[in-house]
Each structure stands twice: as structure tokens, then as C-alpha cells.
């Protein structure tokens, strides 16, 4: 839809790039659907436990029940209500994913902008560091470290920080290349020419212009983080019982997938839905910020 012409005197509204991107995002159907589902799942995982009759760690008298009016998602062999567990697990998984995304985006943006802005030996140093972290076999290191976390009570926050320490390189690479091209733009030199400091240029001019790529890679990190945490939990590390996560439920349920399929499929489908939705949101963000793709600035 073409924009109305901005005639003098006509009522008009200043449009920031962010606002334009929002408009494009809202028009992106898959992304909006993804957002709605994600909000619902996260909302349910936060509010739901207050309404379910059973606690996630509560052992009921019903063992290995298939889904029923009493237990919507059934129960496991020792009487856990699966619905309560899935809600709790989604909450933990999403929390971990959000912390990971925030933290590794922060580290990645910091390292990426500094490397891209200063170039030279700073860039070489930071880039090699990034490469180094990138080639570390994440799962192996995480397993080793997660083991000791499990022994310390399986704090989900520690798990998140640990994952974040290995996921920032992808953000750093994206941000660095974006900043490398941004810093050559005239407006950056114009800022130097009015006497703006490096910090000011980076914070007020480079990062806001890189918001698109940053948002997209942060979103994709969410998926990576959820899957990584699930892998850890699947292998038996990370969050310690009685607390739970989606990966853990899938791991436990997998052994029973033929005899009591609900134990595997309910948490598995929730995991899948979350990851799919986050990917849709990532797609939507990418399209929303990519002006070339949608042809001009509408």
C-alpha cells in the first residue's frame, strides 16, 4: 500500500524507522500469529500454575493415567500431573531462553560494535576471540559445566548464564559486519566532525542503526537457547529435580513414547510450537527491518 504524500499543512505524523518496521511486522501474518501464540504460551505458563489443581512437584494418587478431565495431559508413573509440569517446564525454558538471549545479545553487541568501530588490532583480537568461542564444542563444555551446576542445586539462572557465554559469537559477527559498513557512512563522519565522542557515536548512532540485525539474531538465539537447554536436560544435566524443563520432560517421556505416548508428545509439541513461533517472529523481524525486501520505505 503506498504511503500518502506528505503535503504541507496536511495532518501528518513523523515516522521513525522503528515505527515503520513495527507496521511492517504487524502486517506479517506468520510473525503476528507466532507472537500471539508465544504470548499465550508464556502467559499460560506464568498464570496457569495458580489455577491448576496440582503443583508441578506434587505426587498424586493417579499413576500413568492417560489424558482425562481430571488430568488434561495425563500423569506419569509416579503420579505427576503432566499439565502442571508442562506449564512449569515452559516457564523455565522460556525464562532461560530470554535470559540467554538478553545476555548473549548484550555481550555480542558490545564486542561486535567495538571490533567493527575501532578495527585494526582491536578488531583482530576480538574477532579471534569470537572465532575461538565459536569453534568450542559447546555441548561438550556445557555438559561438563552443567554437571557441576546440577550438583550445586541446578539453578536455572546459572544454566542460562552458562549457555549465554557460548552463544554470543553469532550476534557479535552480525553486529561487527553491520557496524563495519555503518561506520563508513557519512553521518558517522559528520558526528566526528561535530566533536561527538566514540561512546556517543557507538551508543546513539551505530547501535540504533543496527537494531534490525540485532533483533533478528537475538530472536534466533531464543530458539538456540531453548534447544540447547533441552539437549542438556535430555542428557540429564542442567535444571535439577523436582524442578523441570521441556527438555527434561521430553527426555523422561521419550522412554515411554510407545506405552504412554502423552508423556512424550505433550511436552514435545509445546517445545516444537515455541521454537516454530520464535522462528516466525524472527522472520517477521527480518522482513520488517529489511527495507530492500519490501521495496522502499512503506
Amino acid at each position: 500500500m503506498p504511503e500518502p504524500l506528505l503535503l504541507t499543512g496536511a495532518p501528518r505524523q513523523s515516522r521513525s524507522q522503528l515505527r515503520l518496521a513495527m507496521r511492517r511486522f504487524v502486517r506479517h501474518r506468520a510473525a503476528m500469529a507466532g507472537t500471539v501464540v508465544l504470548v499465550l504460551v508464556f502467559g499460560a505458563s506464568l498464570i496457569g500454575p495458580h489455577f491448576t489443581p496440582y503443583g508441578f512437584a506434587e505426587l498424586t494418587e493417579d499413576y500413568s493415567q492417560p489424558p482425562s478431565a481430571e488430568h488434561w495431559m495425563g500423569t506419569d508413573a509416579i503420579g505427576h500431573d503432566l499439565l502442571s509440569q508442562v506449564l512449569r517446564a515452559s516457564q523455565k525454558s522460556i525464562q532461560i531462553a530470554l535470559v540467554v538471549a538478553a545476555l548473549s545479545t548484550f555481550i555480542g553487541v558490545l564486542i561486535g560494535t567495538v571490533a567493527g568501530y575501532y578495527r585494526g588490532w582491536v578488531d583482530t583480537l576480538l574477532s579471534r576471540m569470537t572465532d575461538l568461542v565459536l569453534v568450542v564444542p559447546v555441548l561438550a563444555v556445557l555438559l561438563a559445566a552443567a554437571n557441576s551446576i546440577s550438583q550445586r542445586g541446578g539453578n536455572w539462572f546459572l544454566v542460562a548464564i552458562l549457555i549465554a557465554l557460548f552463544l554470543w559469537p553469532t550476534v557479535a559477527l552480525v553486529v561487527r559486519s553491520t557496524v563495519l559498513s555503518l561506520r563508513e557512512q557519512d553521518f558517522v563522519q559528520a558526528q566526528v566532525a561535530i566533536g561527538a565522542s566514540d561512546v556517543r557515536i557507538i551508543v546513539k548512532h551505530l547501535i540504533p542503526n543496527a537494531v534490525g540485525p540485532i533483533a533478528v539474531s537475538a530472536t534466533l538465539l531464543v530458539v538456540t537457547a531453548i534447544l540447547l537447554e533441552s539437549s542438556l536436560a535430555f542428557l540429564g544435566f542442567g535444571i535439577a529435580p523436582p524442578d523441570t524443563s521441556l527438555g527434561k520432560l521430553v527426555a523422561v517421556g521419550q522412554t515411554a513414547s510407545s506405552s504412554r505416548p502423552w508423556l512424550f508428545y505433550f511436552p514435545g509439541v509445546v517445545l516444537l510450537v515455541i521454537c516454530l513461533c520464535v522462528n516466525f517472529v524472527g522472520d517477521g523481524l527480518r522482513d520488517a527491518f529489511d527495507t530492500r525486501r519490501s521495496g522502499g520505505r512503506a
Binding site: A190, G195, K204
Partner: peptide, 25 residues
Amino acid sequence: LRRRLGKDVAIVFQDPMTSLNPVHT
């Protein structure tokens, strides 16, 4: 020098289309 730039001596560049940051008013 950065502290002098813009204050004692300033510059106007050739291309005004790219000299302003698109994301700020």
C-alpha cells in the same frame, strides 16, 4: 581535537542525503 571540532571549527559535507542519521529526528 574532538573537543575542538564542532566548536572552534566545523564542517559541512558534500552529500546531505547521507550525512544525517536516518534513525533520529
